[in-house]
Write a protein that binds this DNA or RNA. Structure first.
Lengths: 110, 110
DNA sequence: ATGATATATCGCGATTTATCGATATATGTA
DNA sequence: TACATATATCGATAAATCGCGATATATCAT
């Protein structure tokens, strides 16, 4: 888990969008004929408006950062989020960035 | 709070390093003669190995992203973390990226 | 006013990233 | 085998980012 690589991977709107779409495959990719449990077909992400080759390149960046995994099934390659890496990254980033100050105690309301 | 701008700002090791240094000013900038409550002098960050102009540019990126604020005092400009924005960003990123399993999903304004 | 210090901005070259079309590779089908 | 489909890779161009020195601006001190 390389935090710098992940931050770079997230620093492009199309790549972030892909990760967000993959949070709810059944909502965004219901048109896919194959079961969504396998993942989402690479070609599905061309809906972001970029060409096939560009989308392929973005998926490679996400995969190299460890944010997604892929699985070939016949001619198709299905992509899924790598929840373990995503969770580890969020934990790491929070740990790094969060204020070191001891938090003010919550005030008791009524 | 623009999540995309913040992600881009964090996607450079020197800028991330500056934010991390600013978490504990008394630990990293004890050499500063001025009180650290004011913030940390811009020139202090040249310890990352980059030139004065480059450091100034990185500080401007952090400030435009809302991650730090600055305060002029005489010839010096003191930088501090903007804890509110940092916390809001972390909350937003977690909300966006965390696994959507059995959880209401946020909608994203482009 | 002069000079010194701190920071920002400008201008430029170097590097990286983004994007595309074309092509290569892998698989499936007839 | 030949053809179609899905994806990756290649080559080129464009755009963005990075980094620097030089310079401008603002403030302080004398």
């Amino acid at each position: 888990m390389n935090t710098d690589d992940i931050l770079k991977a997230l620093a492009h709107p199309a790549r972030l969008q892909i990760l967000l779409w993959l949070r709810e495959p059944e909502l965004h990719f219901s048109s896919q004929t194959h079961p969504l449990d396998l993942g989402v077909c690479a070609s599905q992400f061309e809906r972001c408006g970029l060409s096939q080759s560009t989308v392929s390149s973005h998926l490679a960046v996400l995969q190299r950062a460890g944010l997604v995994t892929s699985q070939r099934l016949g001619q198709w390659i299905f992509y899924r989020r790598n929840e373990a890496t995503i969770a580890a990254f969020l934990a790491e980033l929070s740990s790094l960035l969060e204020s070191g100050e001891s938090r003010p105690l919550p005030t008791r309301s009524e």
